[in-house]
Design a protein around this nucleic acid. Sequence first.
DNA 1: GTCAACTATCTTGATATCGAGATATACTTT
DNA 2: AAAGTATATCTCGATATCAAGATAGTTGAC
Lengths: 165, 165
Amino acid sequence: MEDEVDRLVTAWRRERPDLDVEPLEVLSRVSRLARHLDRARRLAFSEVGLEPWEFDVLTALRRAGAPYQLSPGALLTQTLVTSGTMTNRIDRLAKKDLVERLPDPNDRRGVLVRLTPAGRDKADASLAGLLTQERAILAELSREQRRELAGLLRRLTGPFDNIPG
Amino acid sequence: MEDEVDRLVTAWRRERPDLDVEPLEVLSRVSRLARHLDRARRLAFSEVGLEPWEFDVLTALRRAGAPYQLSPGALLTQTLVTSGTMTNRIDRLAKKDLVERLPDPNDRRGVLVRLTPAGRDKADASLAGLLTQERAILAELSREQRRELAGLLRRLTGPFDNIPG
DNA sequence: GTCAACTATCTTGATATCGAGATATACTTT
DNA sequence: AAAGTATATCTCGATATCAAGATAGTTGAC
């Protein structure tokens, strides 16, 4: 099946035959697919009254395991947002009583963000729904193809996730 | 090389062994990689005084070929933003004299957005830089692996790009 | 031809994000 | 122990985005 990136690449080869646009075959698809996924997630979460950014924070805390707490800094590396954004997110989640801020006993600069019981419920309730939706999207591929795809993507994410930045 | 998604999946398997989180192996990597790419693009474009959203619009017009014009609607499907966002983008690009709005001669509701010569220069100047950066990111993979990866991603983007929505 | 349904674009208000800098605390070197 | 450097989080202002609805023009059924 042809997609928008096929059309885009064809157009560039006509307009700029001097350039090798092969990188777009992979990376434009990654960017576009991520935007499609965002839209789908936004729609799915709105049915349970949750925003994608709320899901990201609550589930990061949930999978940390009891007592479901992480520093804002740890949340930054998991969610790839800036510190100003995370402060704002924690403020809003705290106002909704889904998380609470505690002083870090080991570092007086630091803070621990802890899931409240209501926050934990929200996290658990939304995860199953997300997985169902994602499974439908991935039904295009065989189990073996999904493994292959995950492995190739890991090669690209690995450097970003391990080199500081 | 292990990445953040490996850690995330391991954590879920410990915390929620009742759920099959295999879909995250693919789709969380897509979302995270897209965010890394956004950051890298933002940095690279800032060196030539361009925002990623400006690049997206200018290059869509550029690859349409002479006379470098498209309707706002066509730009929507290429950039995956809402109509309100696109109106705003066109306004700002027009204020910088990178594009201009023309009435569509065939539909009086419609508008055509056309690249100015300055806009065309910006588009051409920025594309080569982007490709260089992307080539470096993709150097992790062999040519054959890149083709494989592009093909697998197309299977996922195809349905989104072809089913209306 | 007229009316209803549809389409293309724009307007508006609320909100989330970013970048840069501020503040407070911790660590390291001498 | 003082000074300088590094780290953790927050503050603030500017800006881009979205969702929903408004406006204007088109199309098709009759």
